[in-house]
Design a protein around this nucleic acid. Structure first.
Length: 930
RNA sequence: GCCGAAGUGGCGGAAUUGGCAGACGCGCACGACUCAAAAUCGUGUUCCUUCGGGAGUGUGGGUUCGAUUCCCUCCUUCGGCACCA
């Protein structure tokens, strides 16, 4: 009888020994290449989640693989220990956040150890330790000293439930709710601390030094949202020295800017607004301020706005244009003011139609299409015949109840001829218009172009005189917009040749932006400009459980840094837990009282704490030397280990942590603290393990899978193997409790193969030994490649396949042969990174090899052994599989073709026809084409 | 609305450079062992079929001797952004 596989006994035993021996300690060793493998640090929520296992197991396996490959691998762990849940627990269960957090950490350490991962626990870092946050505060000071931290009053997203401000990326969904508690956020005006992430916007867009997933790069690129264009200055009519600056991506449309719109909260509104308009403007401002972003959500809602009474000068054509305010212009993007070009911007068009503002087209349609509706009775007989002979597209149809009209569609080159015809045929007392690419109004005494605001009014006046039903229209475009036939040609936002733009008319679309920008710069009325969607990082939190911001406010001296030698600014323990909505720090009777570092007088500490993303922006550096107290990290350790070689974690941090940490690194580099362009060279994201119901795991749904129970039932090795096997790592998927049986059986079968006495001994056929070696080395090749590529599921299936083959070889008497001995040795080495305990046990106890398997080198592939000797030649007729013939791998093309043509199965489908082609794909197939 | 990803048996998934579709595993069926059950072991398992074969990787088309793989159309699902000037 052999002993049964008993992971509950094996696993803790080896874990204890590895720990006692310091097997995974990673120390500087210049003789070996280093590898810094990092997984995103966990928040100590209390219980290790299956998601943690899913994220960490393959990373651990890969780190172990690299270790066997000869790298000096550092694989550290720690805790992102500040944050809101600790405070919520404090309010709910009346337990101090510190106590709650550290109890959770203790619990999670135990759970983490049960995974059997190769963490070097000496490097553990906990962000809520004073010896850690001292250096978070140090980084704040450095950023402040270098002008990268500043304080400003700003409208910020505030969660009324969490009672704190949120960074932009912590606000989710269409209803703009709090990432954590799902309460819709409100806007508040507060004085807050910011980091100047925008200073690095351009560099953050450069991913060339790093190997990161396309998806993350794209998310970050969109988040940063760079757009190129120009800033243009519009002087006020009332005071020419006052300027409204706008950002536009379309300087080529400047001549079509017929009004301006400011955000309701724009600072210039007060100055611009005339007395007559003041009441309406202030009412609108109040209404806009009251509206939360939730109301603004509807993109297609009707545009609203009011006129301020003020006017600006369009700097390119000197036109006087009205200034409006409207809530479709955001104070937070660009300059909070826009030039409205209604002919070429959808929102501006809708707004202009709504409020009767003039719309002047200044960019020709790229397709050159124009339309013209010939009113019933407006032309003399014979016009339709002329159109036909000129090959002009049209159809006749009733126009309301006025009789039959002609609906004409013109190509670019037909416009002149059509205009001439119309001039000739137009009945007196009528007009006809051409709209779309050309904008011409043909009256019986001449042709007028819709090329300016004056022309707009002149044309409209004539039309009203001729045809009174249009008298209520305020602009030509509004009049045209009432005819459905024209709707699709009145507006477009494409690039095209400039028209109605003075000396720029005729400039082609592909040169227009550049030419106009040059012109603006020459004239000193504007310049090329770049705008970003990215905003500065708001780091103030009105909470207790975080790193205090090391600033002091003095009535006389203003804001001052806490001197570096006074760090850390310690978080007090003796705080009151009252659900007041205020941070306990603010309510603490004495904590905030201090002296001013500048004048020595009375001063108050900043009572806000830092966003926890600040702590997690540099934790990979604290791992280098968590006890070091002369700086955030030991420079020697930094020079050896940094940058991080592989970084693994969830995609959900793409626009948060992963942008912050890159910003931090770049800022740190420019301050002379860090080195290199990027902190993490290679990033890979795992997917998410869902509940068995396919939904996200949550306590309320009751679909949570508890790792501890799984370990108790199957052992850590099985759980590790299953997590690597059950889905593509980057995709994840629903948990399947039945599926665990697969890897569980695999390990039991491995155990049996190694511990059971074989029934048949000796005299194996030579071929099975050769095949065994081939299979071993092919598997080794596959597994090696899959580790390199983060393809973990196929590692397990390859190992399962090889095991099946080893059983076959055993039953043919292979045990004891050199090929067999090689197989059982290599097999355990390949298993070691995935299932470290069983591999060690069988290595030491069954094979009687020297401890530890985890110090063994990764085996070398014997290419000659992996080489196949015979292949199955596929014979196709017209691309369809007709026969399989076993042939030597080095068969010549000629022989392969001959063999295929000789196939009887293939011949049956060739119907005695002569092959037209015979295609040979070396080592694979012959395709006979008849 | 804009940007992106993914669609392969009952299920998870494999097919690495355009060349045998469905490896490996789950589940299921049958068999062995057992008084019985569990465990274990073995065999089978894309669908249709007149047993010759035919169809088949979301849909429809294209390129090719040959397409899960490349190109185009559409559909579905998921993710991101969203009045961004």
């Amino acid at each position: 009888m052999t002993e049964k596989y008993n992971p509950a006994e094996i696993e803790p035993r080896w874990q204890a020994k590895w720990e006692a021996d310091g097997l995974y300690h990673a120390d500087i060793d210049q003789s070996r290449p280093k590898h810094y493998a990092l997984t995103m640090l966990p928040y100590p929520s209390g219980d290790l989640h299956i998601g943690h296992w899913y994220a960490m197991t393959p990373s651990d396996a890969r780190a172990r693989y690299l270790r066997m490959k000869g790298y000096n691998v550092m694989f550290p762990i720690g805790f992102d220990a500040f944050g809101l849940p600790a405070e919520n627990a404090a309010v709910k269960h009346n337990i101090h956040p510190k106590e709650w957090t550290y109890a959770n950490i203790e619990r999670m350490r135990k759970q983490l150890r049960s995974m059997g991962a190769m963490w070097d626990w000496r490097r553990e870092a906990i962000s809520s330790d004073p010896k850690y946050y001292r250096w978070s505060q140090y980084f704040f000071i450095k950023l402040y000293e270098h002008g990268l931290a500043y304080r400003k009053m700003a409208p910020v997203d505030f969660c009324p439930n969490c009672n704190t401000t949120l960074a932009r990326e912590q606000v989710w969904g269409e209803d703009r709710h709090c990432e954590r508690c799902e309460t819709p956020v409100i806007k508040k005006d507060l004085e807050q601390w910011f980091f100047r992430t925008t200073s690095y916007a351009d560099e953050l867009l450069d991913f060339s030094p790093i190997d990161w997933p396309e998806r993350v790069r794209l998310l970050q690129t969109n988040w940063i949202g760079r757009s190129e264009g120009a800033s243009v200055q519009f002087p006020l009519v009332a005071d020419r020295r006052s300027i409204i600056t706008v950002f536009t991506t379309r300087p080529d449309t400047l001549w079509g800017a017929t009004f301006m719109v400011l955000a309701p909260e724009h600072p210039l509104v007060e100055k611009i607004t005339t007395d007559e308009c003041r009441q309406v403007v202030e009412a609108y401002q109040a209404q806009a301020a009251r509206r939360s972003d939730i109301d603004r959500e509807a993109v297609d809602k009707e545009k609203t706005g009011v006129f301020t009474g003020g006017y600006a000068i369009n700097p390119v054509n000197g036109e006087r244009i009205p200034i409006w305010i409207a809530d479709y212009v955001m104070m937070t993007y660009g300059t909070g003011a826009i030039m409205a070009v209604p002919a070429h911007d959808e929102r501006d068009f809708a707004f202009a139609i709504e409020y009767g503002l003039p719309i002047i087209p200044v960019i020709a349609r790229p397709d050159g299409i124009s339309k013209s509706l010939v009113f019933p009775g407006s032309v003399r007989d014979g016009f339709a015949a002329e159109l036909e002979s000129a090959d002009i597209e049209f159809y006749a149809a009733p126009v309301g109840d006025l009789g039959e009209g002609l609906f004409v569609t013109l190509q670019r080159e037909q416009v002149d001829h059509y205009t001439a015809l119309m001039t000739q045929y137009l009945q007196p007392g009528n007009w006809n218009e051409i709209v779309g690419s050309s904008w011409l109004f043909i009256f019986d005494d001449g042709v007028v172009a819709l090329d300016s605001v004056d022309a707009d009014q002149a044309i409209l006046a004539r039309c009203k005189a001729i045809y009174p039903p249009v008298r209520h229209n305020r602009t030509v475009m509004e009049m045209l917009d009432s005819l459905p036939f024209y709707r699709d040609v009145l507006f477009h936002h494409e690039y095209g040749d400039m028209i109605h733009s003075g000396e720029f008319s005729g400039v082609p679309g592909d040169a227009a932006v550049e030419k106009v920008t040059e012109f603006l710069e020459e004239k000193g009325i504007g310049e090329g400009a770049v705008n970003y969607r990215l905003r500065d990082w708001l780091i103030s939190r009105q909470r207790y459980w975080g790193a205090p911001i090391p600033m002091v406010y003095c009535e006389g001296c203003g804001w001052n840094l806490v001197p570096e030698d006074e760090l850390p600014v310690l978080l007090p323990d003796d705080v009151e837990w009252l659900p007041t909505g205020e941070s306990p720090l603010k309510l603490h009777p004495t904590w905030a009282q201090t002296t001013c570092p500048a004048c020595g007088g009375e001063a108050r500490r900043e009572t806000d704490t830092m966003d926890t993303f600040m702590c997690s922006s540099w934790y990979h550096l604290r791992y280098l030397s968590p006890e070091y107290d002369e700086g955030p990290f030991d420079p020697q350790e930094y020079d050896y280990w940094m940058p991080v070689d592989t970084y693994t974690g969830g995609i959900e941090h793409a626009t948060m942590h992963l942008i912050y940490t890159r910003f931090f690194h770049k800022a740190g580099r420019d301050m002379g603290i860090m080195k290199g362009a990027e902190p993490m060279m290679r990033l890979r994201n795992q997917g998410m393990v869902l509940g068995e119901d396919g939904e996200k795991m949550s306590k309320s749904r009751g679909n949570v899978v508890a790792p501890d129970e799984l370990v108790a039932a199957y052992g850590a090795d099985t759980v590790r193997a299953y997590l690597m096997f059950f889905a593509r790592w980057d995709l994840g998927g629903p948990w399947d409790s039945q599926g665990v049986g697969g890897p569980s059986r695999w390990l039991k079968r491995v155990w049996t193969l190694y511990t059971e006495k074989p029934q048949i001994n000796g005299n194996p056929p030579e071929s099975i030994l050769r095949d065994l070696r081939r299979k071993v080395h092919q598997t080794l090749k596959d597994v090696t490649r899959d580790f390199e590529n983060f393809e973990f599921n196929t590692i397990i299936s390859s190992l399962m396949e090889l095991l099946n083959f080893m059983y076959l070889a055993r039953d043919q008497g292979a045990v004891g042969a050199p090929a067999w001995n090689e197989a059982v040795d290599v097999y355990l080495r390949m298993m070691a990174p995935v299932t470290p305990h069983i591999a060690e046990e069988l290595w030491v106890e069954t094979l009687d090899k020297p401890y530890s398997i985890h110090n063994q080198p990764w085996p070398e592939v014997d290419e000659a052994a992996a080489q196949v000797e015979q292949i199955t030649l596929i014979v196709q007729v017209n691309g369809r599989l007709r026969d399989r013939i076993t042939v030597p791998v080095n068969i010549s093309a000629e022989d392969a073709k001959k063999t295929a043509l000789a196939s009887e199965s293939a011949a049956r489908f060739m119907e005695d026809k002569k092959p037209r082609h015979v295609i040979y794909v070396p080592g694979r197939l012959v395709n006979i084409v008849i």
